[in-house]
């Protein structure tokens, strides 16, 4: 069983929901990332989603775009993401880690080279925003060869017939995008999310995580009531960026994100079934 499947199974047996923070590798600097991952785990992260810096992050709102720019300013890349996971695994061999990013850095490295390197350092899954099921055959062949999961997005605009096609390629969990829009945007409508999740459940037994638009403990609690997992990205990165802008140190900035995650953890647990 993959680390991700195992983690969801364990949480389900405890009657808890998964909390999945997203941070960008190398934001604001590379030396912050590994300690931040450990702190996030200590304060309630069940799975860590690592953003791979890309020059053209087309699905990101302004908060995460700037995180990519801060990371790129000192050259953080897919290779660094792999190195970060290798270092993280020196102390934590339990927490699943997934890489989220865009097709080009992975394609440029080569799907086979990436799969071997990622499996070796202990990456559990890949989520590429811009590789839909129509384009995924080559990537999946390599991921499956090394036993990695491929996480797919389902959107509010996804018709029923596409859901079947998407979940047929997916493993680990399915990521439901709660709003039409970019990361960090929009008004979250939990009733709407609930009805879309039930559409997905008709096609898949995989755990369903929800992201985009979850900002705080209250919105996380509301989503945790209807989903198996909650993804939080922009809110954490905004908390860090705000601290940095006010002149705080990188460690203080990272701490602000960790504190917010702890509050969100409490929200998620308050909603647990």
């Amino acid at each position: 069983m993959s680390r991700i499947a195992g983690r969801f199974q364990q949480l389900a047996s405890e009657g808890r929901k998964a909390l999945i923070p997203y941070i960008v590798v190398g934001d604001p600097t590379l030396k912050v990332t590994v300690p931040l991952m450990h702190s996030l785990v200590e304060h309630g992260a069940d799975i860590i989603e690592l953003g791979v810096p890309f020059s053209d992050p087309m699905s990101e709102g302004p908060v995460i775009q700037l995180a990519h720019e801060r990371a790129l300013a000192h050259g953080a890349s897919l290779r660094d993401a792999l190195e970060v996971v290798r270092q993280f695994r020196e102390q934590d061999n339990e927490t699943p880690v997934l890489l989220m990013g865009y097709a080009n850095p992975v394609e440029h490295m080569g799907y086979a080279v990436f799969a071997d390197a990622a499996a070796e350092v202990g990456v559990d899954a890949l989520l590429t925003v811009d590789i839909p099921p129509e384009e995924v055959a080559q990537v999946n062949a390599q991921l499956h060869r090394v036993g990695m999961d491929n996480i797919f997005l389902v959107a509010p605009t996804t018709p029923d017939e596409r859901i079947g096609r998407i979940v047929g390629q997916a493993s680990g969990f399915v990521y439901y995008v709660a709003v039409k829009g970019v990361t960090g945007a929009g008004h979250l409508d939990v009733a709407d999310v609930k009805s879309h999740l039930s559409r997905i459940r008709e096609h898949s037994q995989l755990p369903l995580a929800v992201g985009f638009g979850i900002k705080d403990a209250a919105s996380a609690a509301a989503v945790a009531n209807v989903a198996d997992g909650v993804v939080v990205g922009s809110a954490l990165i905004h908390a860090m960026a705000e601290k940095l802008e006010s002149g705080a140190s990188e460690d203080e900035a990272a701490n602000a994100a960790v504190q917010l995650l702890a509050e969100i953890r409490a929200g998620v647990d308050s909603a647990a079934s």
């Binding site: 087309m58 097709a103 811009d130 384009e135 997005l153 959107a155 605009t157 998407i166 829009g181």
Partner: peptide, 20 residues
């Protein structure tokens, strides 16, 4: 039919846009 010119082209976008 999938928009490919040999190995080029295709449709590499976020899921939200696929239906459109």
């Amino acid at each position: 039919l999938e928009g490919r010119f040999g190995s080029y082209g295709g449709r590499f976008v976020a899921e939200t846009l696929m239906a459109a």
